[in-house]
Amino acid sequence: MEPRERPFLCAPGLKIEAQERLVALQFQQLQQQLARVEALIERLEKRLWLTVYGVLGAILAQAFQSFLSVAPG
């Protein structure tokens, strides 16, 4: 049985490996931040639609009220 060959480690190779790990961590952090931003945008969108429907409901209620006051009773 032959002994396993150990890879030769040199300074440039280690530097490249460290840089690759750093880039992977940066991408992971970026993906987490993007997920948080997407969740924030989704909540903001829900609030916006709630506001739009609220304003529309108020306008329709006011129109209905003015229609009732004009209609002969």
Rank of each mutant, 00 (worst) to 15 (best):
P72R: 05
A58N: 03
L14T: 07
C10L: 07
L9E: 11
R6H: 05
I41N: 14
Q31I: 00
E2W: 04
E38S: 12
Q33C: 09
Q33T: 03
L22W: 06
L50Y: 11
L50M: 13
V55W: 05
G73T: 10
Q31M: 04
P3C: 08
E38H: 08
E45M: 11
L40R: 13
L9A: 10
K46V: 03
L34I: 00
Y53N: 13
L34Y: 04
V52I: 15
Q31P: 00
L14H: 04
L48N: 14
E2F: 06
A11L: 03
F8Q: 13
Q28N: 06
L9F: 05
R47P: 01
L40M: 04
Q19G: 10
W49A: 06
A35V: 00
E17S: 12
L48M: 14
S66C: 12
P7Y: 13
V52R: 10
L68A: 15
Q65H: 12
S66Y: 11
L14D: 08
L56W: 10
L56S: 15
L44M: 09
A11I: 02
E5V: 14
L68I: 14
K15Q: 07
Q19F: 07
R47E: 14
S69L: 15
L30W: 02
I16S: 02
I41F: 04
F67M: 13
A18Q: 10
W49P: 00
V52S: 08
I41R: 15
F8H: 12
L48K: 15
Q28K: 02
Q65A: 15
Q65G: 13
E38N: 10
L9Q: 12
Q28Y: 01
Q65L: 14
I41W: 07
G13C: 07
Y53F: 14
R4E: 06
L40T: 12
P72A: 02
R6I: 14
F8E: 12
F64K: 07
V37K: 05
F67K: 01
Q62E: 12
F67T: 02
G13A: 05
E2K: 08
G54A: 14
E38Y: 07
L60T: 03
G13H: 05
L9P: 01
P3T: 08
Q33K: 10
Q31C: 03
I16K: 00
L60H: 00
V70C: 06
L68V: 15
A18P: 09
P72T: 01
A58E: 05
K15A: 14
E2P: 11
R21E: 02
L44P: 01
A18S: 14
L68K: 15
F27V: 07
S69D: 14
Q65R: 13
E17T: 13
Q28W: 02
T51E: 06
V70S: 11
I16G: 00
S69R: 15
P3K: 09
A63Y: 06
W49G: 04
L25T: 01
L48I: 13
F8D: 08
T51S: 08
L34R: 12
F67S: 04
T51L: 11
R21M: 00
R4W: 06
L34H: 09
K46F: 02
Q33R: 13
I59E: 10
A63V: 08
V70R: 03
R36G: 11
A63M: 12
R43Y: 03
A39V: 02
Q28L: 02
A58G: 05
R43Q: 11
E45S: 15
G54P: 05
E38D: 07
R4L: 12
L22I: 06
W49T: 06
E45V: 11
T51A: 10
P12L: 00
R21G: 04
